[in-house]
Design a protein around this nucleic acid. Structure first.
Length: 401
RNA sequence: GUGGGCGUAGCUCAGGCGGCAGAGCACCGGGUUGUGGCCCCGGCGGUCGCGGGUUCAAGUCCCGUCGCUCACCCCA
């Protein structure tokens, strides 16, 4: 059997519901802060990452999926998103547009690292970038946005770590002095920027810790750097990280374009999400049919329900009614419609509410004793012509409770 | 890239000193001629990761290899 390659995994239902939840919350919050989505290629010229991230970094030196295409050009599967976003901004002259250019994107990144808990070779990031502003207020807005998303996701214990990496001038001084922490060598402008960031975080009551050892693994960062770590993730505990990168646009041959952004590690975020979020609470109708003519009728009915916006399902395998009812239960149907010879003759189907005897509950109220000692819930006969309206009305009433 | 732990049914795992490959859950069917959960009965399901070696005989012992996993490192 062919298996997925090392470090790459399938994300399966029901887990996919948690991923969708994370992504939909992120989209909502991005919109509140004025961010728009950008979609990017997964492949870029190797040179883009070499120049943006830095040749000496681990990412470029030993972790990229790089190969020659049929023409001989060196291409690389993106190991991060920022370089691609900036490339797209510069290529399409987006920085010329009014105000701060605020963009987000989400998708897979690729790094050839040894897999472990929270670290995969194909991993997913939710990425946020703001171009064209160097005010410390923008740094804080970006951090507030990140915290906003994480809080909406009902996450448990999180710690926000911040630091300032200074500007190239500060870094020169720092290296010359062989100092331990760069933060003590900040020039007056960088120090004032950092102080303002901290002041604003306090005003908005965002708890943070200054972490002088916090550095970013990419060469392009300047001034504000931050990271969010979560409990329960083992050694790979960073859920999000980001910072300011004022020099990158010029490094890539573009104009002076201050920028700041962050990436959320979606794999790790989903890992620490509360278990029950994103559960499927949708109403679902199962149509059980007995015999060929009823089966024909059932398929038509199911399609009719679906066209009207109700999730509906049926069995094509010709199972017994008992088996179909079991299936209805397993699929968490809230109503079962039963169609047999008797119902076809009568022109009315049996509609059976399922929730009163869900496999999740031991509640035997509302059940009446019928022949054979079996318990049966109240079920109603509904004429075919009223069926879809009846179900729609019932389910809408329950949804509004 | 380095080190530790682990690879047996779809899942979780048991298999003493080498001697017929097992359980629970899940799945399918029946008990109930047309009605779900529970219960009872039955059934399906295996390259014991892969390759080699020792042996009359290997899931079990030895060597190699691949994979998973955790950590180092690095990161989000």
């Amino acid at each position: 059997m062919i298996k997925a390659i090392r470090g790459m995994r399938d994300i399966l239902p029901p887990d996919t519901a948690r991923w969708q939840w994370v992504e939909s919350v992120a989209r909502e919050v991005f919109d509140l802060y004025g961010y728009q989505e950008i979609r990017l290629p997964l492949l870029e010229r190797t040179e883009l990452f070499a120049r943006a991230i830095g040749n000496e970094t681990d990412i470029v030196a030993k972790e990229m999926y790089t190969f020659a295409d049929r023409k001989g050009d060196s291409l690389t599967l993106r190991p991060e998103a920022t370089a691609s976003v900036l490339r797209a901004v510069l290529e399409n002259r987006l920085e010329k547009e009014a105000g701060i250019k605020k963009l987000f994107t989400m998708g897979p990144m690729f790094r050839h690292e040894r897999p472990q808990k929270g670290r995969f070779r194909q991993f997913y990031q939710i990425n946020c970038e703001a171009f064209g502003g160097d005010a410390p207020e923008l740094d804080v807005e970006v951090i507030l946005l990140l915290v906003h998303i994480l809080k909406r996701l009902l996450l448990g214990e999180l710690r926000l770590l911040i630091n300032s990496l200074g500007c190239p001038e500060c870094q020169k001084k720092f290296k010359a002095a062989l100092g331990l922490f760069l933060i003590d060598y900040l020039c007056p402008d960088c120090a004032a920027h950092f102080a303002r960031v901290r002041e604003l975080l306090e005003r908005f009551q965002v708890a943070y810790e200054v972490q002088p050892r916090l550095v970013r693994g990419l060469d392009y960062y300047t001034r504000t750097a931050f990271e969010v770590v979560a409990l329960g993730l083992g050694a790979q505990d960073a859920v999000a990280g980001g910072g300011r990168y004022n020099g990158l646009a010029r490094d890539l041959g573009g104009p002076e374009l201050p920028a700041i952004g962050f990436a959320i590690g979606e794999d790790r975020l989903v890992e620490v999400l509360p278990q029950d979020v994103g559960a499927d609470a949708r109403h679902r109708v199962f149509v059980a049919a007995l015999g060929e003519p009823a089966q024909e009728r059932a398929f038509t009915l199911v399609q009719d329900l679906r066209r009207k916006g109700l999730a509906a399902e049926l069995d094509f395998a010709g199972r017994s009614l008992k088996a179909q009812m079991t299936l209805a239960d397993r699929l968490h149907a809230t109503y079962a419609v039963i169609l047999g010879e008797r119902e076809l003759e009568a022109g009315a189907a049996q509609v059976r509410p399922m929730h009163k005897m869900s496999h999740r509950s031991t509640d035997s109220d509302n059940l009446t004793e019928v022949q054979g000692g079996r318990l049966q819930v109240e079920q109603e006969q509904v004429p075919f012509e009223n069926l879809t309206d009846y179900l729609l009305k019932k389910i809408r009433a329950e949804n509004s409770l």
